[in-house]
Design a protein around this nucleic acid. Structure first.
Ligand SMILES: [Mn+2]
Ligand SMILES: [Mn+2]
Ligand SMILES: [Zn+2]
Ligand SMILES: [Zn+2]
Lengths: 140, 140
DNA sequence: GTATTTTTGCAACAATGTTGCATAAATAAT
DNA sequence: ATTATTTATGCAACATTGTTGCAAAAATAC
């Protein structure tokens, strides 16, 4: 299982360190679930929040994870699909945010929506957030 | 011009105070532009950030303003269209966020997008954010 | 004008984001 | 395998934002 983490580090030319391996493990385990800095602090043994912060920044930059915009105020990240690379993110999918448990997950499929934009505006990226109650938090 | 602000306060049964009037003026002036707490701190004469914070919360709750989710990390608010009321927001429009100047504006038209949701998930609200460069920040 | 209700301003604290810097660790060179 | 070089880590320090409690001030009701 650490194998996959190691592979990712190598492919992105990142040094193989304990923190990075552990963080990657968490993301691999999380699947479509997005993780915040504080999530990682809870999950790891002796975490340093600044190191985690920088690790996430690095991973984002390398195209390993992407920010999952969910309107929650705190930054969350989720594993990118394979196609992403440095300066080339391809994460045009929607995110679901459960305002009950706070969980945020990546949804399948890409966003397609026609919104009329004022003259002279240039769109670079789109974020689509669905907010509501996840399956686990459904009443009865 | 203060007339409109006063009218809004009355219609929502809010006490007519200096801070509230000033904040409303700012929003009326801002039009489609969303304002952060700190924007208001800059704009007003002797602002207290906690009072502004609570004022915004109150306005939001009353359906006077709505949060403009833009992934910027800080909370921004914009004037609701008339139809909104307490516990009944109808702000299903997209927002544009300029990552150059940081400005966020409300876009016309409502969001329509079909994303496939996993079994058991219930959507309550949708946020659509377009990120890029606004007209003012366009090169040459 | 006085009583009552609400708002304001301040203190205080928590959480998150962010940078600088010395030390430790990882990789490259010998 | 040792040493040199490069990079990552951990800690201090600080900024910003969000959030609550509480007494004084202001707005409305009586
Ligand atoms: Mn995602
Ligand atoms: Mn809006
Ligand atoms: Zn949930
Ligand atoms: Zn701009």
């Amino acid at each position: 299982m650490t194998e996959k983490a190691l592979d990712i580090l190598q492919r992105h030319q990142l040094r193989n360190t304990a923190v990075r391996r552990q963080v990657l493990e968490q993301f691999l385990q999380a699947g479509h679930k997005a993780l915040s800095n504080s999530d990682l602090e809870d999950a790891l043994e002796n975490p340093d929040r600044i190191t985690l912060y920088r690790t996430l920044k690095t991973f984002e930059q390398k195209g390993i994870v992407h920010q999952a915009i969910d309107g929650s105020g705190t930054t969350k990240y989720a594993l990118c699909q394979d196609e992403c690379s440095e300066h080339e993110h391809h994460d045009d999918h929607a995110h679901f945010h459960c305002h009950d448990c706070g969980k945020t997950i990546c949804l399948e499929g890409s966003i397609k929506s026609a919104v009329q934009l004022p003259e002279g505006f240039q769109v670079q990226q789109k974020h689509f957030v669905l907010e509501g109650t996840c399956a686990d938090c459904q009443p009865e």
